[in-house]
């Protein structure tokens, strides 16, 4: 079961002939993901790693029966790549690309709201259902199958948490990176709802950071709708106001979005908040 991706995932890779796209296509195939083809405009008809390359997402989806697309297209062209995947009516689109302009993402968001597609990302490490499927760039070897759902705005910090869980013998149902941009496709709230509904997930780990109000909304949702226990970690306790901390979305503006504010809200709804990443598995196990 798990959420979003599993053994039935049939994956297209947008930007499959690029350096990043090619490297991670190999990694995903090695993990066992069912990659059914790729897209690079102008390179239709070629083959990469034994997979057919198409000029357009529509042709690729029709020919392969794909149900997920992952995007490694460079930032200047990434928004158009997402719009193309929406137009081809793919139910799930995962955008790894970092650095997409906000204006482009506002247009994408608007198109998304009128479609049936779900976007995860951009600027995210993607999805990993241990032992079944990997879509994106998460290192597969640090994860193991289990019943803890992981959702995160970060990349390497997510690996840190997954690794810490695995070291303690705690496996994961699905790991979801929602990305560090101010405007994204899937929120904490969306993923929490999916984990709550997923029979394979028993507990949830949420990794947030400073900036925005997504964690606050998540806390409210947990208080009202979640029956499964949640453990959280929030990065950026020491971040100064008005400075962007790496992720475009990680910025405290006008005193809104501080780590202290988010931690207090989580604690008020019974979420246990870890002080260090190593503490996450302790809180999950107890």
């Amino acid at each position: 079961m798990a959420i979003l991706i599993n053994l039935n995932t049939r994956l297209l890779v947008q930007g499959i002939t690029g350096q990043q796209g090619l490297f991670h296509t190999r990694q995903m195939i090695a993990y066992g993901t069912n990659v059914v083809g790729g897209i690079t405009p102008g390179k239709g008809g070629q083959w990469v790693e034994g997979k057919p390359v198409f000029d357009t997402v529509r042709c690729a989806a029709e020919a392969t029966g794909a149900n997920v697309s992952v995007i490694y297209v460079p930032a200047p062209f990434a928004a158009d790549a997402i719009l193309e995947a929406i137009d081809a009516e793919l139910p799930l689109i995962v955008a790894i690309t970092e650095g997409i302009p906000v204006r482009d993402m506002m247009r994408v968001r608007r198109a998304l709201d009128q479609s049936q597609s779900r976007l995860v990302g951009p600027n995210c490490p993607g999805l990993l259902t241990p032992g079944q499927s990997k879509v994106g760039i998460m290192p597969g070897h640090i994860a193991m199958p289990g019943s803890v759902g992981v959702v995160s705005r970060s990349g390497t910090l997510t690996y840190e948490a997954i690794n810490a869980l695995t070291q303690r013998g705690i496996g994961q149902s699905t790991c979801v990176g929602i990305g560090g941009d101010p405007i994204n496709g899937t929120s904490f709230l969306d993923v929490l709802q999916m984990f709550e509904d997923d029979p394979d997930t028993e507990k949830v780990v949420l990794i947030g950071e400073i900036g925005g109000t997504d964690e606050q909304k998540a806390a409210e949702f947990i208080g009202q709708h979640m029956t499964k226990p949640v453990v959280a970690f929030i990065a950026g306790r020491r971040a100064p106001e008005g400075r962007t901390m790496g992720h475009a979305g990680a910025i405290v503006e006008g005193g809104v979005g501080t780590a202290a504010e988010k931690i207090a809200l989580f604690q008020s709804v019974g979420v246990r908040v870890a002080d260090t990443p190593e503490q996450i598995p302790e809180l999950v196990a107890s």
């Binding site: 390497t156 910090l157 997510t158 840190e160 990065a235 020491r238």
Partner: peptide
């Protein structure tokens, strides 16, 4: 010196903790 924004923030947090 860290790879990844979230991990870099967490590293800052740990040193000050």
């Amino acid at each position: 010196l860290v790879n990844g924004a979230g991990l870099a923030m967490a590293t800052m947090d740990m040193t000050s903790l």
